[in-house]
Simulated assay, not measured.
Amino acid sequence: MFELDMRSRKPIYEQLVEKIKELIMNEVLKADEQLPSVRALATELTINPNTIQKAYRELESQGFIYSIKGKGSFVNPNNQTRDIEKIQSVKKDLEKLVLEALYLGIPAQEIIKLVQDLDASKGGGESHD
């Protein structure tokens, strides 16, 4: 399904949470699709089942998955949670790029004009006029 970086400073369960969220947001994992069992995924990734369980609990608390006792964990069909998460991710990436552009000397007005031109040409977003 995916690989984890065992040498990373980021805890394994956090890596697992991020990977599963990414698969859900990119619709590799579809709504109501069953996730691998804790035991099966732990065996596949050769990590402690408690780590998988912790990641699944975190994903459930964030609204990405839901569990049915005795059946397993499933992808939550609620798109709103995924949309909010994706928007936050895009905003964070955009912030980094804007800060880099400002650092490199691109004037703020030029960045704003670029965004406005893109918005006009793509017909994107909501209008707040």
Results as ranks from 00 to 15, higher is better:
12 I>P: 01
22 E>V: 01
127 S>Q: 06
58 E>R: 11
102 L>C: 09
51 T>K: 10
89 S>E: 14
49 P>Y: 08
93 D>H: 10
91 K>I: 07
101 A>S: 11
35 L>G: 01
99 L>G: 08
85 E>N: 08
51 T>C: 03
18 E>K: 01
37 S>C: 04
50 N>I: 03
62 Q>H: 06
68 I>V: 15
42 A>E: 03
82 R>M: 14
81 T>W: 09
44 E>H: 04
128 H>T: 09
83 D>M: 12
35 L>E: 03
6 M>R: 09
106 I>Y: 07
110 E>F: 11
122 K>S: 15
112 I>E: 12
6 M>V: 08
121 S>M: 15
39 R>Q: 13
2 F>V: 06
74 F>I: 06
3 E>T: 11
75 V>M: 05
118 L>G: 14
41 L>K: 01
90 V>S: 00
9 R>L: 09
72 G>M: 13
69 K>G: 01
61 S>I: 03
110 E>I: 05
46 T>E: 13
88 Q>P: 00
99 L>A: 02
124 G>C: 07
127 S>N: 10
85 E>Y: 15
82 R>K: 15
107 P>T: 10
72 G>D: 05
80 Q>K: 07
107 P>S: 00
13 Y>C: 07
21 K>C: 10
81 T>A: 03
105 G>V: 04
28 V>I: 13
88 Q>M: 14
76 N>R: 07
11 P>E: 04
77 P>L: 09
47 I>V: 06
65 I>G: 00
28 V>R: 01
114 L>Q: 02
85 E>C: 09
19 K>S: 08
37 S>T: 15
68 I>H: 02
10 K>L: 12
40 A>I: 02
13 Y>K: 05
91 K>W: 05
14 E>Y: 05
96 K>P: 00
1 M>A: 07
36 P>F: 13
120 A>S: 10
114 L>H: 04
36 P>E: 15
121 S>L: 15
79 N>F: 10
38 V>T: 10
109 Q>A: 14
71 K>G: 00
15 Q>L: 03
126 E>A: 10
67 S>V: 12
51 T>V: 06
76 N>L: 13
33 E>P: 01
94 L>H: 11
4 L>T: 09
78 N>H: 10
67 S>D: 06
88 Q>A: 14
70 G>F: 05
87 I>G: 00
121 S>Y: 11
79 N>M: 14
68 I>Q: 04
103 Y>H: 13
85 E>A: 15
77 P>T: 09
112 I>N: 03
70 G>L: 05
20 I>W: 09
74 F>L: 03
123 G>C: 12
65 I>H: 06
17 V>L: 01
51 T>W: 11
91 K>F: 08
21 K>W: 01
26 N>M: 14
115 V>L: 15
106 I>H: 07
